[in-house]
Design a protein around this nucleic acid. Structure first.
Lengths: 144, 144
DNA sequence: CACGATTCAGTTGTGCACAACTGGATTGCT
DNA sequence: AGCAATCCAGTTGTGCACAACTGAATCGTG
C-alpha cells in the first residue's frame, strides 16, 4: 500500500503542533490560577470522579507515576489536593481535592467552552475530529 | 452559544493524548537511530529544504530557540548536523545536514507510511483530520 | 504458612517546551 | 556618522513526559 502524498507526512506533525497550540491557548487562562494544563486535567478528573488513586489518574490521563508523582506533589503544595495512603492497602495513595481545589471548578467551568469557541470548529466538526482522534489514539499494535 | 456536552470537554484532551500516543509509536522506530521525534522533525525539514537557519526551523516547527538550541547541539554531537554562522550576518546560524544525517533519509523514508498505516485511518479520514487540525491550529486570537 | 511474582507510588536521569532574559550583530532613522 | 530599536541564537529556570529502577505491600500458589 504505497499511496499518499505529503499529507501523511504532515498529519503526525499537525497533531503534535495542534496539541501544543491548544495548551498554549489554555495557558493564559490557567496562569491566573497558577495551574498548568496537565494539572488542570488532574483536577477535572477529581471534579468528575471525586477522590481517585494515583493509579486511576494514570489510567484516565495515560500518564505514569514518573509524571504524576511530582505533579501531584506540586498540586498538594499549592493546596489543591491532599494525598492519603489507603489504610486497606498501604501501597495505594488516594488523591482528594481540597475545598480550594473544588472551588476552582466554578471559575474554570466555562473554560473549555471558550477555547472550543475560539477554534471556530462547529459541533459536527468537533464530533468528526473526536472520532478520528479516537481512532488515531488506538492504533494497531503490530507494525508491518 | 451554550450548546455542548462532554464532547468539547474531551476534545482538547484527545488532542493531547493522541499527540503523545503518536510520538510513542514513533519512539521504537526512531530509537535504533538514536533520534527523538522532535529531532526527526528537524531532520525532515533539512531533507526537504537543505541548509536552514535556526530561525526558519523555528518557524517551520513552531519551536523557539530555547527548545531548538539544545536540541541542535545534541544533533551536532551525534554527527547528524553542522552549525555554521552566516558570514554575511553573524547573528544567524545555518544548520547543515551532514552526510550521515542525509543518509538517514533513506532508512526513515517509509516510517511515516508505516505509522499512518498502523492507525488504520483511510486517506479520506486523513484528509478530514488534516483539515480539522489545521483549523484547530489557527484559532481566533480574541477570546470572549 | 511460605515465598516468588506482581502491584503500587516514588525516584533518577534525559530530553522536550516555553517564559524570561542576555549579549552581540544589524537595521533604521535622524 | 551616531545611536536607539530590533533581531538573532543562546542560557536559565520550571514543569511535563517517559524509561528504568527502587522498595515496600500484597497476592497467588504450592
Amino acid at each position: 500500500m504505497k499511496a499518499s502524498t505529503a499529507l501523511d507526512d504532515m498529519i503526525c506533525f499537525q497533531l503534535y503542533a495542534a496539541s501544543r497550540g491548544m495548551t498554549a491557548l489554555y495557558r493564559p487562562l490557567l496562569d491566573p490560577h497558577h495551574l498548568t494544563y496537565p494539572q488542570y486535567l488532574v483536577l477535572r478528573v477529581l471534579w468528575h470522579d471525586g477522590p481517585t488513586t494515583v493509579r486511576d489518574l494514570g489510567r484516565a490521563l495515560a500518564l505514569d507515576s514518573g509524571t504524576l508523582s511530582p505533579l501531584l506533589k506540586r498540586l498538594e503544595t499549592q493546596g489543591f489536593v491532599h494525598r492519603l495512603r489507603d489504610p486497606g492497602d498501604e501501597r495505594v495513595v488516594v488523591v482528594h481535592p481540597t475545598a480550594e481545589g473544588t472551588a476552582l471548578r466554578e471559575q474554570l467551568d466555562d473554560l473549555t467552552q471558550r477555547l472550543i469557541c475560539a477554534t471556530g470548529l462547529t459541533l459536527d466538526e468537533l464530533s468528526t475530529l473526536h472520532h478520528l482522534l479516537h481512532k488515531a489514539r488506538n492504533p494497531r499494535k503490530d507494525l508491518p
